[in-house]
Design a protein around this nucleic acid. Sequence first.
RNA 1: GCGCCCGUAGCUCAACGGAUAGAGCAACGGCCUUCUAAGCCGUGGGUUGCAGGUUCGAGUCCUGCCGGGCGCGCCA
Length: 550
Amino acid sequence: MFPSAREYLREKLKTALDKLGIQLDGIDLTFDKPKNEQFGDFATNIAMLIAKKVGKAPREIAGEIVANLDIEPELIEKVEVAGPGFINFKLTPKFYIRRIYEILNQGENFGRLTIGKGKKANVEFVSANPTGPLTVGHGRNAVLGDTIANILEWVGYDVTREYYFNNAGRQMKILADSIRLRYLELLGEKIDYPEEYYQGEYIKDIAKMLLEEYGDSLKNESDLRIFKEKGESVIFDDIKKTLERLGIKFDVFYNEDWLYEKKIWDVVSELEKLGYVYEKDGAKWFMATKLGGEQDKVLVKSTGEPTYRLPDIAYHIEKFKRGFDLIIDVFGADHIAEYPDVLRALDALGYDISKVKVLIYQFVTIVKDGEVVKMSTRKANYITLDELIDEVTPDVVRFFFLNRSRDAHLNFDLNLAKKQSEENPVYYLQYAHARIASILRFAKDSGIKVEKIDSANIELLREKEEVDLAKLLGEFPDVVEVAYLSLEPLKIINYLNEVAEAFHRFYHRHRVVNSSDMDLTFARLSLCLATKIVIANGLKILGISRPEKM
RNA sequence: GCGCCCGUAGCUCAACGGAUAGAGCAACGGCCUUCUAAGCCGUGGGUUGCAGGUUCGAGUCCUGCCGGGCGCGCCA
């Protein structure tokens, strides 16, 4: 077992701190990669962080720590105290190079961690009601949620991907009636189609299907049920197909309706018991102000119907009861005001809300022909996710949505996205992968026994570009951990870009397959293979394909 | 009016509180008789919206202002 540099250095430092009798309690022992190479490969600021506690100058403590370090000269090239009290480490090429063994041995499992082993996570995302096709806006949610689920799987969680929907509300009634009116139109009736009804073409398509199936027998049908059911099933099938094109598959579709019979009323009575509910104007109010909220909120309307937040609370209780250790909700910025009240209620009811992580991502703005397109499902002036996938590719769509932090608005210039498809950054990563595949093919075709790569003498890798690349590759598990801690897939993209860059540079300067030096050829092939493994594993997490040829 | 997010190169965006703020695109100049040029090397481009504060150190944290987005319902 060859640990990553951070793991290795952490152990060394902990031992040194122990010898000095210094407790960390809560202070993070972390390692930065200095931008400037003169400061070594890794630096820690621990001496500065503990200075106050210990009551000594940072540089002095740093010196003491270094003096107590067990330095293996084979693996650690240099340690020094610098600047205000950084401890800088430079490890030997051997340290980095031997990690290639680790990568080759672990293969497609390299980067998998055990942080979440034995724990269950639930990721709820998309959760669009079946009133129309998914839009580009839903796309960001879908790709983000799915990739976060992938990350959780990589760190060991047993993950459930869940889609929460409502097929009973007012919007569904409007959908049903929209279909009914379009159906009557098809029968030649003159209809005054309300402006607030769904305007999309797909409504007419569904009406057509009903016409083909039932002829004119629904002409006088006043019960909306048949229109609603047809609409729901057609639209849901469509949504599922779209998601599948992006490689997204849900484990559970949870119907909000399942909560209405009993579970939401249990919530009301529990909250009443705890004294967080009062009646006013015939409605039941939740005392959010008593729990730090800005204003109290209605739980049950004077009509006796629940407001949306009541099933939201009941739904989260269900997730707790189903035994999840980590509950993730992926919401758009328009839901920002919703969740604090839900969390307050859960907290009041005694649930551990630190298990709930609400991830809010900022909106997608669509710019088409230089103009911002205002999106509205009802008005049908949206661009569907399907159209987007048609215009570019699933890989580009996924990459585009992931290549921004959650908090950044996503400015999606449609014209540019199409135009860019030949020079999109996603190809930079895929190209590196394909290039390596090509080298391996070439080696094989040249009669080299590629399967013997494992026994290569990798100590022959001494060039700067080789060591730099190996150094990066070894960090992959650390990057997966960071992506998990921040729940930001972007961290993986940024890292893969560095890997691809380091590989291209290595490739450009050094010949891999060279019949006059087979030992070096094998060593370099092993480096190539390790690179391919890391890029492939990273792309797998992102849900992006790994072409052998481009 | 209140809450949340954003403001970084011409454009789109990065940067666990760390040392000289980085990529891609766009602009300009080089590199293919050898394993994929969807690549590599180089040049130009910045008061990180403004003003204070916290500390060894701030693009990052705090306060106030300016600008943009999203919310603030007995709608979901």
